[in-house]
Amino acid sequence: MDGFEIIDPRFKALVLPNAPLETLGDGFRWLEGPVWFADLDCLLVSDLPNDRILCWTESGGVSVFRQPSGFANGHTRDRQGRLIGCSHRDRCVTRTELDGTITILADRYQGKRLNAPNDVVCKSDGSLWFSDPLYGISTDYEGGKQMSELPPTLYRLDPNGDLTVVADDFDGPNGLCFSPDESRLYVAESGAQFASDPVQHIRVFDVVDKRLTNARVFHTISPGFADGFCCDEDGRIWSSAADGVHCIHPSGVLLGKIKVPSVVSNLTFGGRHRSRLFLCASHTLYAIYTNVRGAARP
């Protein structure tokens, strides 16, 4: 199957040999944070170093949704369908209200400023879980150099506004994804940005009520490392990698790859049946139809 690498025979049924990798737009600086809006039939995505959020539609192509964006990175939607975003420049998690106004949900922990929230996911109880590494304040390219006041941390923000540390033993917590039944939380450990030999793998935790337990290494991406990923409805992880997209069984076994010409940073399922995979690949936005559906919101 041209364009795919079948490592485990089970992968063959998950992809479509007649569905090509499609270019939806190019000429961007570095794409991140894709989120699908099924009710509006559009994809929002961050062109991070250009300090803007883009909107893609099938009929209209790519347009600017918001600029400046506070050097927005990861996005999700809350239980009411509102856009939740991570701002590097402003060092906060925001919510875009239905009238377009922006509310800051979290920017400090115990009086100290957050670093640069990177990715965020919403649980069915309305809580928001987000990663807060140093990446966005370490360079001027993705937000602007600023002093760190807190260590790299993974937080949970409850609907009542309480902010709680759920894991603090990361060098660089990055992409996040709940399993379809929310019994697991997958977290990308992307390591210290300028380390000569950074720790880089996907970790998984068991989710027990509002706590994370039983931390372990789930899978190590090669080549490259996991930046962002998403789950399909059967719990397989579809992860970014240096050579494209890697599909990983819930047991941690690599099933196969979708080959992409440039490094993939993040991805999400969308489209009419949640079976179209949108890929943020460096300077290009791609999409490819699959034979699986992305996990539905519980």
Rank of each mutant, 00 (worst) to 15 (best):
G3Y: 08
R10C: 07
K12R: 15
K12D: 13
K12T: 15
A19W: 01
T23K: 12
D26G: 13
L31S: 04
E32I: 12
P34V: 06
V35W: 03
V35K: 06
V35I: 10
W36P: 04
D39C: 11
L40Y: 11
D41A: 15
L48N: 11
D51Y: 08
W56I: 08
W56K: 07
E58R: 15
E58H: 14
V64M: 08
F65W: 15
S69I: 10
F71S: 04
A72F: 02
A72P: 00
G74L: 10
G74V: 12
R77L: 15
G81N: 04
I84N: 01
G85Q: 06
L98Y: 00
D99R: 06
G100T: 02
G100L: 10
I102P: 04
L105K: 07
A106C: 14
A106T: 00
Q110E: 10
K112Q: 15
V120Q: 00
K123V: 00
K123L: 04
S127Q: 09
F130K: 01
F130M: 04
S131V: 03
D132A: 03
L134S: 06
L134F: 14
Y135E: 01
T139D: 08
D140W: 05
D140K: 05
D140A: 13
Y141N: 04
E142D: 07
G143K: 01
G144K: 06
Q146H: 09
L150G: 11
L154M: 08
N160I: 03
N160D: 15
L163R: 12
T164L: 09
V166D: 00
D171A: 14
D171Q: 13
G175K: 01
G175N: 03
C177T: 08
C177H: 04
S179N: 03
S179Q: 07
S179P: 02
R184P: 00
G191F: 09
Q193M: 14
A195V: 02
D197M: 14
P198M: 07
Q200A: 13
H201T: 10
V207A: 01
V208S: 05
K210R: 13
N214S: 12
A215C: 14
R216N: 02
V217A: 11
H219F: 15
H219C: 13
T220C: 13
I221W: 03
I221Q: 01
I221Y: 03
P223C: 13
D227I: 09
C230L: 07
C231R: 01
E233A: 15
E233N: 15
G235E: 01
R236I: 13
S240E: 06
S240Y: 06
V245P: 00
P250C: 14
P250E: 02
G252F: 03
V253K: 14
V253M: 12
V253R: 14
L254S: 13
G256A: 10
K257I: 08
V260E: 01
S262H: 12
S262R: 02
V264I: 10
F269Q: 02
F269E: 01
F269A: 02
R272H: 13
R272C: 11
R272D: 11
R274H: 12
S275Y: 04
F278M: 06
L279C: 08
T284F: 06
L285N: 03
L285C: 07
T290S: 08
A295N: 05
A295L: 10
A296D: 11
A296N: 11
A296C: 12
R297K: 13
